[in-house]
Design a protein around this nucleic acid. Structure first.
Lengths: 168, 168
DNA sequence: CCTGAAATCTATAGGTA
DNA sequence: TACCTATAGATTTCAGG
């Protein structure tokens, strides 16, 4: 009896169980060598290679990153900011998101539904730097109606969001 | 005139400008080859390798990860949940955080100060799975006083949080 | 921090089902 | 099409300066 092969479509691309396993491994061990990866998914180097390249070129794998230990970083304040816009025209969203993309104190931004429009994670060296960000945000005519600031006191958990939840 | 060398301490470890540059590069290009990294920071292979290992062993670099394109992932719902606890004894925090650590639908969790205690990012295949998570959370006697659910409609931005903000 | 040689890994070409 | 083996070339590791 063969193991059941889960198939998923990601935009244009169809993924089989082996692709998903590759993604899973790379999500957890982003710097694993390609030969170790091939062994892990029971494939020859070249076959595994070809799949990995397909996953990168199709955009399913966007990028690779080292994750640093925030708790070891002194001189670093993290804030979470919840933003409500004054009106919800397409243009309001576009302009706000362009601002977020361009501002490099903003590390993360989720668009939300249900009473808050955006949740931001902001990185600053001092509170005054954060306040500078907020002042700037409010002075740009981005139609921010309300915002709420929360100091991040602890990074309890941070995992990549993704594929592992689609299995099982 | 020498370039100014910024120094930072991360817990036990002292970092110089070259270490910081290495961290910066690895944060952005987690799968860069070690020789390319050495060239990028103007160091010989072996010197750069030695530093990289020090950064990994000291725990400043925790891990490496592939980042997948969430917008391409069908069958995946993301929720943000804001949690207020009923009381703030040390034990309440410890137990809540242990729950978060153990539950693999919860991908991210920040501890906050300022009216909300925790912000969670949850991954589910269906809304009913998310509701199952909430039901479970509430049935564990974790002293959750209130929670607020927001559907994530768009991942506007996601960058590693870290070192780059400490420069400039 | 450097050099250099041995061990390992990667990319590609050519073949099988 | 998807996979395999083989191999030349590149990279990584490590000993010694």
């Amino acid at each position: 009896m063969r193991a059941q092969t889960r198939r998923l479509s990601f935009g244009q691309t169809e993924l089989d169980g082996t692709d998903i396993r590759i993604l899973q491994v790379l999500q957890d061990e982003g710097r694993i060598s390609k030969s170790d990866l091939a062994a892990r998914v029971h494939l020859s180097n070249s076959a595994c290679f070809e799949r990995m390249r397909r996953l990168e070129q199709s955009g399913i794998i966007r990028s690779y990153h080292a994750r640093l230990d925030l708790d070891l970083m002194e001189d670093l304040q993290i804030f979470q900011t919840h933003v409500v816009l004054g009106s919800h025209r397409q243009e309001d969203f576009t302009r706000f998101e362009a601002y977020v993309a361009a501002n490099d104190m903003i590390a993360e931004c989720y668009g939300l539904g249900g009473g808050i429009d955006y949740s931001l994670t902001c990185v600053a060296r001092r509170i005054s730097d954060y306040q500078g960000l907020i002042d700037d945000l409010l002075s740009r005519g981005l139609n921010v109606e309300r915002y709420y600031t929360y100091v991040v006191t602890k990074q309890v958990k941070r995992r990549e969001i993704g594929i592992d939840r689609l299995l099982g």
